[in-house]
């Protein structure tokens, strides 16, 4: 039997998506029966770019090296998959788009107490891009698998579907659809700032006055965080309605729902979320999906 060949590459990302693949556990063994990993930085010391049927690329494009590696992947793979939130939307390192390359380099290498005495930037590292950008700004992408990282359940489904020559469909359901917490109406709740201030374990964070992005985030994680008491930070990227409709936005939708549940003034919620925009918009900030929204003025909110 001829095995399908999979090649993977890892750009500006944290390796979490590769690790999530290992989380397939015994299923990985079933997968290895059908496929051959010709290039996978996690297990194999393969520096070249062998021909492959499917290429999975984790991470965003942040440097000259990333760009070259991505182009090599595009050439060597028949189908290219943007694997994980960084690859699809740019990810948290995309926040750099608020400042630009020079400001960041100066801040890190020149303006700190540990900077080198000669006042020069270190040499030899690959040139940085002006800002970190998602993969489809550089090459054509055949399939998208968002998630930070995507739950192994979704990875298994996606790889099987792609090998079977069809497109992995993503459900429009949000994180709330899998969450075990009870969303209920409350009175006299105050907006709580900061994290982990919700005391009740089985009631929705929004009902308790804590901002949770579950309702505006695609379910690519089976609601692991909110079920374990951690608010959703929107790591799988914005939900389908927010991408498709120009008038809907992360902060306005959260404010509407929270206002209906608790009666907290919408303006108060919106103002708070704008002030903390780098937190609440972090995962898809450098993607056109967010920065092209007419009502989103990230640069102004961030004061840069």
């Amino acid at each position: 039997m001829i095995k399908s060949r999979i090649s993977t590459e890892w750009l500006s990302g944290c390796s979490g998506c590769h690790i999530a693949m290992v989380d397939l556990h015994e299923k990985l063994m079933n997968l290895i029966d059908d496929v051959e990993f010709v290039r996978i930085p996690l297990f194999k010391d393969e520096k070249g770019y062998p021909e492959a049927d499917v290429g999975l690329v984790e991470g965003a494009v942040g440097s000259e090296h990333d760009r070259k590696a991505l182009l090599r992947m595009r050439e060597s793979c028949r189908k290219l998959v943007a694997f994980g939130t960084c690859a699809v939307y740019g990810g948290p390192s995309g926040i750099g788009c608020l400042y630009g390359k020079d400001t960041i380099l100066n801040k890190i290498y020149m303006d700190t107490v540990t900077a080198s005495a000669d006042g020069k930037l270190p040499e030899g590292a690959p040139e940085l891009e002006q800002s970190v950008i998602p993969l489809n700004e550089v090459v054509d992408i055949d399939f998208y698998i968002p998630g930070c990282p995507p739950h192994p359940y979704f990875i298994a489904i996606a790889i099987k579907t792609i090998l079977g020559d069809s497109v992995p469909a993503i459900s429009i359901k949000t994180v709330c659809s899998e969450c075990s917490r009870r969303m209920e109406k409350r009175e006299g709740v105050q907006l709580k700032r900061g994290v982990s201030t919700a005391s009740e374990e089985d009631v929705c964070f929004l009902s308790q006055g804590v901002i949770c992005l579950g309702s505006v985030t695609l379910d690519r994680c089976r609601a692991q965080c909110p079920c374990k008491g951690i608010v959703c930070t929107g790591c799988a990227g914005p939900s389908i309605d927010i991408i498709a409709e120009p008038h809907l936005d992360i902060r306005t939708m959260i404010a509407r729902r929270m206002n209906m549940l608790t009666g907290i003034d919408r303006r108060e919620i919106i103002d708070y979320m704008q002030k903390e925009a780098r937190t609440f918009y972090s995962y898809a900030l450098s993607s056109p999906v967010i920065y092209r929204k007419p009502s989103v003025e990230i640069k102004e909110w961030a004061g840069s």
Binding site: V167, S171, L218, I243, A244, P288, V289
Partner: peptide, 12 residues
């Protein structure tokens, strides 16, 4: 954005 949605969530 619509193109992205068409490829992410096929049935929408």
């Amino acid at each position: 954005n619509l193109k992205l949605v068409a490829r992410l969530a096929i049935d929408v």
